[in-house]
Design a protein around this nucleic acid. Structure first.
Lengths: 190, 190
DNA sequence: GGAAAATCTTTTGCCCCCGAACGACCTGCA
DNA sequence: TGCAGGTCGTTCGGGGGCAAAAGATTTTCC
């Protein structure tokens, strides 16, 4: 999905509009490209390797995590997959109904739930993963080997930085200007 | 949202599971980090700068595009924002109801719709953008100036590569194994 | 031993996201 | 001039996404 306007025209429009406003342009472009790239990559993987199995990106990521760990608690699955627990509940429901994943209660702590792949799920992943990985390789095809490593490392530093300093930063911003909580969330029972 | 298991443990689990399967590990890590980074960045921006205005990421991106171009057709807005036209319809509805955006018919072609910011929308963006950009800067804080430029360039190459070669690639995969279309989409009327 | 606090999963409400179908509109060609 | 074929925005169905509330269970502390 190419953007409609050439990059040069966009640059020009941005300059016209932001003329008097000081901007960190490098950060702007980096963040913008980060999201464009992530969504283009996701789109490609969903429309190539994942299409044959009729899986969404998120469903695949969950299957991958459970596959790798053989048996894993749902809370850890959510953390590893990078989604909230509430979201995970829905995905599990779908994967369970398709017979790819199984849930059982933790023997010692009944609050916990454990996940593992069914034999069908296992067979699917063994078949699907190589195709998926081949598309991941295609995605970074235009980069040199060195550059792929460097990219991964740069991104990892961004992730770590936000994990370590993000909360403090947001906290201090909130001290300056108290802000309303994000909308949404369950309504209190009447 | 740090992952639960240390990276080293994950690496080990992956090795155990994929022992016999050949893997392009560099591509795997790069793609994985790309998505983790994009979602961490988005999360940070939504919970810092965008929180005060009660805007989601997508709503902000749409406002940004319309702001930059002053007046723009909806189809171009969707392309620039990187979302489908169906998604855009919903976001516009929200922004219109909040009085931030206006829609009018194209004078020469009644199929087209034109978007522009209301005075309130304009005031909001002039106020919000500097704060947003400051958080973009924070996000890449841990990188050197050179590295930010290099990151943007690397990501741009991935985007371009997928725009130019992605369709052909998916096409040729489909020739090998015909696949069902993605689920979802409106049902044909009875 | 029992109530309060902590911890987990699920539910709920609001939003985003895509793609196919649809109706309104425009255009080219017979 | 009239209609076939294309384009546009919207609608609709199926899913994902979060935060807060709720319900179930375990732990802590008197």
């Amino acid at each position: 999905m190419p953007a409609h306007y050439p990059l040069s025209a966009t640059e020009e429009a941005v300059s016209r509009r932001l003329g008097s406003i000081p901007v960190n342009r490098e950060a702007l472009v980096a963040v913008s490209n980060l999201h464009r790239a992530a969504s283009a990559v996701r789109q490609h993987l969903e429309n190539s390797a994942l299409r044959a199995a009729d899986l969404t990106w998120s469903a695949f990521v969950v299957l991958w995590v459970v596959w790798i760990w053989e048996e894993i608690e749902t809370r850890h699955t959510a953390a590893e997959a990078g989604i909230s627990k509430g979201t995970l509940t829905g995905i599990i429901k779908t994967l369970e109904s398709r017979g790819l994943i199984e849930r059982r209660q933790h023997p010692d702590d009944r609050r916990l739930a454990l996940l593992r792949l069914t034999p069908e799920g296992l067979a699917l992943m063994e078949d699907l993963f190589p195709a998926f990985n081949a598309e991941e390789a295609f995605v970074v095809d235009s980069l040199g080997g060195e550059e792929v490593l460097h990219l991964a490392d740069t991104l990892r530093r961004i992730i770590t930085h936000l994990e370590e300093k993000g909360e403090v930063r947001r906290e201090s911003l909130r001290r300056d200007t108290p802000v309303p909580p994000r909308r949404g969330g369950r309504r209190r029972a009447t």
